[in-house]
Amino acid sequence: MKIRIPATSANLGPGFDSCGIALSQYLNIEVLEEAKEWKIVHTLGSDIPSDSTNLLIQTALKLAPDLSPKVLKMTSDIPLARGLGSSSSVIVGGIELANRLGNLNLSQKEKVQIATEMEGHPDNVAPAICGDFVVASYVDGQVYSVKHHFPLCDVIAYIPDVHLLTSESRSVLPASIPYKEAVQASSIANVMIAAILNGNLPLAGLMMEKDRWHEAYRKKLVPHLDQIRNLSQKIGAYGAFLSGAGPTVLILTPEEKTDQMVQELEKLPISAAINVMSIDQEGIQVF
Rank of each mutant, 00 (worst) to 15 (best):
G102I: 07
G102F: 13
N103G: 14
L104Q: 03
L104K: 04
N105C: 13
L106Y: 04
L106C: 00
Q108H: 13
E110K: 14
V112I: 13
Q113F: 14
I114F: 09
A115G: 06
T116N: 15
E117F: 11
M118L: 14
E119R: 06
E119W: 06
H121N: 05
P122M: 12
P122W: 04
D123Y: 15
V125E: 04
V125H: 12
G131T: 12
G131P: 07
D132F: 14
D132V: 08
D132M: 08
F133A: 12
F133K: 01
A136N: 07
S137T: 09
S137I: 00
V139L: 09
D140I: 05
D140S: 14
G141C: 10
G141K: 12
V143F: 09
Y144A: 10
S145I: 04
K147A: 09
K147M: 05
K147L: 10
H148F: 09
F150D: 00
P151W: 02
P151K: 12
P151G: 10
C153M: 13
I156V: 12
I156C: 08
P160T: 03
V162Q: 15
V162P: 02
H163P: 11
H163C: 14
L164T: 12
L164F: 08
L165F: 04
L165N: 09
L165Y: 13
S167E: 12
R170G: 01
R170D: 05
L173R: 00
A175F: 06
S176T: 01
S176W: 02
S176Q: 08
P178A: 10
P178G: 03
E181I: 02
E181Y: 01
A182P: 02
Q184D: 02
Q184Y: 00
I188W: 02
A189W: 00
N190W: 01
V191Q: 03
